[in-house]
Design a protein around this nucleic acid. Structure first.
Lengths: 193, 193
DNA sequence: TGTCAACTTTACATCGTGTCAAGCGGCTCG
DNA sequence: CGAGCCGCTTGACACGATGTAAAGTTGACA
């Protein structure tokens, strides 16, 4: 793999990312090719199909934005409560970064099994963070008694969904800060005594 | 409009409904035509395009399932709290009925402006119910002080979204009854002191 | 000089939506 | 009885997007 190819590959990912985040729905392979400055067919030399390109783009964003590192910070929290707050802060700050890509990937879920699997995979990773926070709360003995670890994780997972962010921030015009504060409160009320 | 035509029209709607609710993603015009027992072209004689057919199907479901009547019951509640409970119960019971159609309509949002508008319209109607419940709570002086009527409505609207139902019931395998109980609690905690 | 890799150009297959036009059987109305 | 209309069929086709195939160009490097 020569450096020229690697350059083109990352240029493709950066361009795809930019196009998706620009809010432009329906980004076509030809749009991406044009924006990168290569032919549509050259795109297929690097990524076999649209789903693969979108998936690679999310992974690219993850590595550039260092989502793993950000979520890792929440692991350092002393109490379960702090851990929950830190996890929510990290995740909620990440949502706007991946929103455009998320929309595109979810739109393909209906027609493309691979795209659906990729999105599920990302969401399962986020769910693990929810599960860890719930466990820390339970270890502190603060989890509401009527909740099992699983149901609490499901509930937190639901509260933190990208779709909920979209509803409040994009559809209702909330400021990111208001969204975060409200979701923090809601999650704490939902799980803690 | 002869009765034969009306028969075919409703047969189309019933069949579309059944196909969508059968969980079969990607219901094509040809699938519907075949299931109804008419030619694909005959479909276009009744509904000019797929979006219109899906929209007509949701309206058909609404009238068969009498969503208006169900929501009207919540208006009879004496207190704001009761009204909130009744509204949630009515809406949450309705979600499973429209879920298949909802998925199809939302999948078209990206490509079809009319479908997006139709879905938005349905959701705005639901939002009015949220607003009414919030107002009743506020009139009782029970709305959490840091919430405005608008933000409280947005929040309730988010909590009651079809997407959240999908996450817990479809993705996490919750029973409808557990989902309803949890959402009731969550909504009450989110809005009331 | 020859070869290889990256890319281009052109053309084509496929799939689903939506359009167009001609025809057909049965029903009604004058 | 016959004219005309309605609901439907059949068959063909355009379009837009994805993805495939094949032959040609360009530049670097041994």
């Amino acid at each position: 793999m020569s450096s020229a190819q690697a350059d083109t590959k990352t240029r493709i990912l950066d361009t795809t990312w930019k196009l998706l985040e620009s809010g432009n729905k329906n980004v076509r392979m030809s749009d991406i090719a044009k924006a990168v400055g290569i032919s549509r067919q050259a795109l297929y030399l690097h990524y076999p199909n649209r789903a693969d390109l979108l998936i690679a783009t999310t992974r690219h964003i993850d590595s550039v934005k260092d989502i793993d590192g950000r979520l890792a910070e929440s692991r350092a929290a002393k109490t379960g409560k702090d851990r929950l707050s830190a996890f929510i802060r990290a995740w909620v700050g990440y949502i706007p970064e991946i929103h455009g890509t998320s929309v595109a990937l979810r739109a393909m879920q209906a027609t493309d099994a691979e795209a659906a699997a990729a999105w599920n995979d990302r969401m399962q990773a986020m769910r693990h963070g929810c599960a860890a926070a719930v466990r820390a709360i339970k270890d502190d003995g603060l989890l509401l008694p009527h909740l099992t670890e699983d149901t609490a994780t499901d509930l937190l997972w639901m509260i933190l969904s990208v779709e909920n962010w979209e509803r409040l921030v994009r559809d209702c015009g909330w400021l990111q800060a208001d969204y975060e504060a409200t979701i923090q409160t809601l999650a704490h009320k939902a799980l803690l005594g």
